[in-house]
Each structure stands twice: as C-alpha cells, then as structure tokens.
C-alpha cells in the first residue's frame, strides 16, 4: 500500500543501510503483515460505511508490539490504549474476535460492549482514557511482585499520554516500590493533530530520569535488533527495575479516520520511515508471499465477520 522508500534507517541520515530482516522468522513477519492488512481493511470498511463509531489504526507502528511480544511471557500482563489493535493481535493472534468486537458481531471478544478501545482477554486489557492504565498496571505489577515473581506488567502509551498526571503518579510509585513495570512509549511525534513540539517540554528520557527509571530509545524498525537491544533491560524489569522504552516511530494513517491535518511533507516523511517497503526490498520473494497470505487471511476474516449476526 505504501510507495517504496529508500533502505535507510531514519536516525542515521545517509549512513549505509543494513538489511532489517536478519533472523526474523516467517511467523514474526506474517504477524506484522497481518496487523497491516487488518488495519488497512478496517479503514476500507469505514470508507464503505460498514463500521460504527470510531477506530484508531496503528499503521506504521506494527513492528512495535511484534518486537515486544518476543520479549514477553504468557504470564505477563499487557495494557493497551486507544490505538491497540496491533497490541491485541500480537498477543492473541485473533483477528476474527477483534473485528467482530469492532463490528459488534457474533464472536466478539467482549460481546461488542467495549469495541475498538476497551478490550479484555486473559491478561490483556485496553482502555480508552489516556494514561489511565498506568496506575492500574502498577497495581497488577504489585500483585505479580508478591505472587508471581518474574512476571511483569507492560503498558503501551503514546507521546501524547505524557500530558496526563496519572503517568507521573504511576512512574513515581513504580520506582518507589520497585515494581515490574514496563512502559512502552510509541512516540510517533504527534498527539491526534498536535505535534510533539507543541505538546511536550523536555523529553521522555528526562521524565524517566526524574524518577530514577531506566530509559531506552529505539530508533530502528529491525525487530531482531530491537529484541537484542531491549532484552537485558526487560529482564531487569522482571527483577523489579521499572523501564521506559521509547520507540521513535511513525503513524502513517490519520488519528482515527479521515482526520489527518498533517502537511503532505510530514506524511511523506512518515511514509519514508515505514518498515513495510524496507522489509519488502530486503527479501522480495518471501515478503510478497507472506504479504499475499496475510491479506488473503484478513480478507477471508472480514468476509466471514461481516456476514455474522449481531453480538
């Protein structure tokens, strides 16, 4: 769906590009492609007037939960936000249940009550209010520390979430109480329509440092490299050393649907940073095969779910 972009790591300027596919399994690549196909299909369903309410797609950010999933264990809790389809699909590989939830059809994960941004399944939970899940995750982390040492609570937030006071109350408590809390910040540089520069004084690293919390910044879309980079720090989280991981990422699509007020240049820059064409260029045959399979799978899921009875 995106135009091919030069093989270039965003943060490295004109430095020579490296293949981002080293060691990436078919399963991981398929998962990224499945999330991409799912989100693209959702926007298409919206355009055709077939979805009720609103939704927020994670186009451009699919690699984040896929990379994280390789570092998480089944006993870990995952907290997601309004832009959570990728987080859910990475955890539960259940596009049928998710689409049914979004469409209010039979087989919906939460009976159609929660919809796109309020989903709970086993140890996965999303909520629609910014920053709200951080204190809740601290409570879960406190429980885990006492009863299931080694397990952690992982919370996905955005750069815009750092406007909420709940974030700081929670970071303070997590640090004071040595909680196994992993905060994953998807810093896509824009909060709905407001750029980061107009939203945040200082930096996310500085905010983590203020609470004596470790901070790692991820500037690549290379899933294997991300896992390698984060593995020691995530292990430390399990020992009660909270961590903020900041992904420098890009939101390709609108905030929700048809509400993108960014300049053509900003959108072009986001597209240029997209993982999709890079992975395609690095291993064209395998990519094309897995992409076609992911699209066919999601097409079949959509056809099935659309035809179902209301939930």
């Amino acid at each position: 769906m995106s135009a091919p972009a030069p093989l270039r790591e965003r943060s490295h300027g004109d430095a020579p590009a490296k293949s981002p596919l080293t060691g990436l399994s078919d399963q991981d690549l398929s998962l990224m492609l499945t999330i991409r196909a799912f989100e693209s299909t959702l926007l298409d369903l919206f355009d055709r007037g077939m979805l009720n309410g609103t939704t927020h797609t994670c186009l451009g950010q699919e690699y984040v939960p896929v990379a994280l999933e390789g570092l998480l264990a089944p006993g870990d809790h995952v907290f997601s936000n309004h832009r959570g389809h990728g987080h859910y699909l990475a955890r539960h590989r259940d596009p049928e249940g998710l689409l049914a939830e979004i469409m209010g059809r039979s087989g919906a994960v939460c009976g159609g009550v929660g919809g796109s941004q309020h989903i709970r399944r086993d140890r996965y939970l999303s909520t629609g209010v910014q920053g709200e899940s951080l204190p809740v995750a601290c409570g879960v982390a406190l429980h885990l520390k006492r009863t299931e040492p080694g397990a952690l609570a992982c919370v996905y937030v955005g750069d815009g979430t750092f406007g909420e006071g709940a974030v700081y109350e929670a970071l303070n408590i997590a640090s004071l109480w040595d909680l196994p809390l992993l905060v994953v910040v998807e810093n896509n540089g824009i909060a709905q329509s407001t750029p980061l520069a107009a939203n945040m004084a200082g930096s996310i690293a500085g905010r983590a440092a203020a609470f004596d919390i470790e901070h790692r910044r991820v500037d690549t879309v290379d899933v294997t490299a991300i896992r390698r980079q984060l593995d020691p720090a995530v292990r430390a989280v399990r020992e009660g050393r909270p961590l903020v991981v900041e992904f420098a990422t890009h939101r390709l699509g609108p905030h929700s649907k048809g509400d993108d007020t960014r300049s053509a240049q900003d959108i072009a820059e986001a597209r240029a940073a997209d993982w999709y064409p890079r992975y395609a260029a690095a291993d064209p045959e395998r990519f094309a095969r897995l992409d076609a399979a992911a699209r066919a799978h999601i097409d079949a899921v959509a056809a099935d779910v659309v035809a179902r009875e209301p939930s």
């Binding site: 951080l134 204190p135 409570g139 879960v140």
Partner: peptide
C-alpha cells in the same frame, strides 16, 4: 488505580 489493578 493501583487498587483497581490489585482487584483486576
């Protein structure tokens, strides 16, 4: 929120 997390 912590109480809610414990309850959860």
């Amino acid at each position: 929120g912590v109480a809610a997390g414990l309850a959860l």
